[in-house]
Design a protein around this nucleic acid. Sequence first.
DNA 1: GTTAAACTTAACGTAAACGTCAGAACATTT
DNA 2: AAATGTTCTGACGTTTACGTTAAGTTTAAC
Lengths: 140, 140
Amino acid sequence: MNVISTKSKEDKVNTITEMCKLFQVSARTLRFYESKELLFPIRKGQHRLFTKSDRGRMKLIMQGKRFGFSLEEIRQLLNLYNFGDHRTRQIKQTYQLGLKRLCSMEQQRKELGIAIKDLKTQLQLCKDLLVKRGADSKDL
Amino acid sequence: MNVISTKSKEDKVNTITEMCKLFQVSARTLRFYESKELLFPIRKGQHRLFTKSDRGRMKLIMQGKRFGFSLEEIRQLLNLYNFGDHRTRQIKQTYQLGLKRLCSMEQQRKELGIAIKDLKTQLQLCKDLLVKRGADSKDL
DNA sequence: GTTAAACTTAACGTAAACGTCAGAACATTT
DNA sequence: AAATGTTCTGACGTTTACGTTAAGTTTAAC
């Protein structure tokens, strides 16, 4: 109906169930994240509507969780992606935190690489033993 | 006193407080891990003594935790590093699990690389804004 | 216009991973 | 032998991150 459909993708908002399907989480989880100030859905009356900003934040939240960060640790960093509407002083703090987080993530990446290598070695040893014990190679 | 000191480093056992200092965890944590069958300290009377095997396991536990794995997930994989004393059938299972875990760790490493890159970009944007707002560059 | 579907708040429950005592046993120092 | 230090086994408490009803409200369908 709108002749001027202004960037439908950018402006699109999602209901809570749509968000659930998008990110494979429960409604409770989304409400919980809002209560912890990780998401800021707008309201249409009483109902929540999730914006592009929320979708971006959710992606980061899911990522952070996979890497073993707590929700609180994630929340602190999220401000880095919405810094437009904050005071200079707070942006500076978030920036500093971002630098630290970057360091620890690079460290984690290194360690992960080593752990992967170790695991490979261990798997080979394990495989050798199984073969020696007469296991059928095709089973592995 | 022992003329033949048989590899003191390998055979060395640690009291619980020594282990606490070694790995920067509480005694409760070590006992908890034992109750969950992640560690198997030997006993001298009532007291626990942690062996080289326990030290190795602890290292893997700490690593696993940093990567965001649960204690149960870690426990299952730990058997991979002590497979000598298990039945072939169980070793096969652990081996299969190890392969899967390896996959997800490599996946995680990839994602971590991307996340690091994104974070760097975002930090740069943030820095630009701060400079534009007249922040002293040396503060950053 | 009412019934059903989707959504809401509020409150209690739960699993994981420990923290924090209490009370007793054992070991060591003095 | 008495005091001190270390360790032990419960057992209850706590935080994080949600799950799970319950009971009411709003929106969409018929």
